[in-house]
C-alpha cells in the first residue's frame, strides 16, 4: 500500500518522466527542421549542428530509459500509471530513431551541398520536410496535452506524406535519367525523402503511443500500417 506521501512522490516522478520525453521531443523536432534546412539552404554549419544535437538526444534517451525502468521496477505501477511509464519508454525509443534519421539527412546534406549543378528540387524536399515536421509537432502537442483526439487526427492522415514521397521519387528519377552528372546528388536526395517519410511514420507511432497511454488500447480501425519501433522488414537494409 502506498502512503499518500509516496503517491505524491510517484506522481512527480511520472510527470518528470513525461517532461523529459517532451523535452526530447523538442530536440527531435528541432533536429528534423534544421536537417531539412541544411538540405534546402546547402548550409554545412547547420548540418554539422544537427549531428551534434543527436548526441544530446541519445543521452536523454538513455536517461529516460533508465528512469522508466527504475520506476517500473521499484514502484510496480499498474493500469494507467504503468502505461504512462511504458509509454514514456516507447516514445523515447521512437524519438531517438527519428533523430537518427534526421542525423542521416544532415550527413547527406553535406554531400548534396557539394553537388554541382544544383538540383532544382530542394523546394519539393523542403515542402515534404515541413509537412513531416508539422506532423511530428502535432503528435508531440497531443502527447504533452494528453489529447487523444488530436493524436487520432495525426494518425488518420499520413497518406499525404506518402504522396509527396512518391511524387518526389518520380521527379528525381526524371532528373537522374536526364543528366548523369546529377545521379549522385539525386540519389542522396532520394534517401533524404525516404528518411523524411520514415520520420513521418514515427510521428504516427507517437500518436499511437498517446492513444495506448491514455485509452489503453490501439486505434480501432484496421490499418495495414507498420507501427512500432522496429524497422519494416523490407527496409531493414540500407
Amino acid at each position: 500500500m502506498m502512503t499518500e506521501h509516496t503517491l505524491k512522490f510517484f506522481e512527480e516522478e511520472l510527470s518528470q518522466l513525461k517532461a523529459d520525453v517532451v523535452r526530447m521531443g523538442g530536440l527531435a523536432e528541432r533536429q528534423v527542421v534544421e536537417a531539412v534546412r541544411a538540405v534546402a539552404e546547402r548550409d554545412v554549419a547547420v548540418a554539422e549542428a544537427v549531428v551534434v544535437m543527436d548526441e544530446q538526444l541519445d543521452t536523454l534517451q538513455h536517461e529516460i530509459e533508465r528512469c522508466a525502468i527504475r520506476l517500473i521496477a521499484l514502484r510496480q505501477p499498474v493500469a494507467h500509471d504503468l502505461r504512462r511509464a511504458v509509454g514514456a519508454l516507447k516514445l523515447s525509443l521512437v524519438l531517438e530513431r527519428a533523430g537518427d534519421y534526421a542525423k542521416n539527412i544532415a550527413k547527406r546534406a553535406l554531400v548534396i551541398g557539394q553537388s554541382d549543378p544544383e538540383i532544382p528540387l530542394t523546394r519539393s524536399v523542403q515542402r515534404m520536410g515541413e509537412l513531416v515536421a508539422s506532423r511530428l509537432k502535432e503528435a508531440l502537442d497531443a502527447y504533452s496535452a494528453g489529447d487523444v483526439k488530436s493524436a487520432k487526427s495525426v494518425w488518420n492522415r499520413d497518406e499525404d506524406i506518402d504522396e509527396h514521397y512518391n511524387s518526389l521519387f518520380r521527379e528525381l528519377l526524371t532528373y537522374m535519367m536526364g543528366d548523369p552528372h546529377m545521379i549522385t546528388a539525386c540519389a542522396h536526395l532520394l534517401f533524404v525523402a525516404k528518411n523524411l517519410e520514415r520520420i513521418g511514420d514515427y510521428a504516427t507511432s507517437v500518436a499511437e503511443i498517446v492513444q495506448y497511454e491514455i485509452a489503453g488500447e490501439e486505434f480501432a480501425d484496421p490499418r495495414p500500417k507498420w507501427s512500432g519501433v522496429e524497422p519494416r522488414p523490407s527496409e531493414a537494409s540500407e
Binding site: A19, V22, R23, G25, G26, L27, E29, M53, S144, A145
Partner: peptide
C-alpha cells in the same frame, strides 16, 4: 502557448531546446 492549467511545467508548453 495554450497554457491549460496553473502550475504547469514549462516544457509542456514550450519545448524548443534553445529556449529551455
Amino acid at each position: 502557448l495554450r497554457i491549460r492549467a496553473d502550475e504547469e511545467q514549462l516544457v509542456s508548453v514550450l519545448r524548443h531546446p534553445e529556449v529551455l
